[in-house]
């Protein structure tokens, strides 16, 4: 049977859900408010991008608007996570992937440094113990 006998046409790529819903622009105001709070009180905050009705095109638009910053952090923990600073310092675009590479959650975090990047004192203690072990092996 030839393919054209099937009455289904493949949609041009990018057309599916490729429309702007109009839900992204208001987020810029919300992010601005979050940045003001960060400056005023040091309070960090985040937006759960999967909790909002945003199309892939919306996310692309938002990402483009926020631009690319100077720092991109990659976290390798149960799959890769990217924590990218946007062109607006203090505004981070965070995407968590599972080991298969699928996106499991995505956030915009407003903070001087994203929480998960900082080393936890308990882990630093373990690191110090390891260092001391290395030093004791030297002699």
């Amino acid at each position: 049977m030839p393919l054209d006998a099937i009455p289904v046409v493949i949609a041009p790529s990018g057309l599916r859900a490729g429309e702007l819903s109009g839900n992204a622009p208001p987020l810029l105001r919300e992010i601005a408010e979050m940045v003001r709070r960060l400056l005023a009180s040091g309070e960090t905050s985040a937006i759960d991008l999967q909790a909002l009705p945003l199309t892939p095109a919306d996310l692309e638009w938002l990402r483009e608007q926020l631009g690319e910053g100077e720092i991109a952090v990659t976290l390798n923990a149960d799959g890769e996570s990217s924590l990218d600073e946007t062109a607006c310092p203090g505004v981070w675009w965070i995407t968590h992937h599972n080991p298969m590479g699928a996106v499991v959650s995505a956030f915009i975090e407003v903070a001087f440094v994203p929480e998960v990047v900082k080393a936890h004192p308990e882990d630093v203690v373990i690191g110090l113990e390891h260092l001391e072990l290395l030093i004791s092996d030297l002699s």
């Binding site: 759960d48 976290l75 923990a77 149960d78 959650s105 956030f107 975090e109 929480e115 998960v116």
Partner: peptide, 26 residues
Amino acid sequence: GVTRRTFVKYCATLASMMALPPAAGR
């Protein structure tokens, strides 16, 4: 072999799934 950061990431995702505010993850 699960690090603290892996756990924090898991909780952030779990909070997102549970429709809790992002701060609830921590």
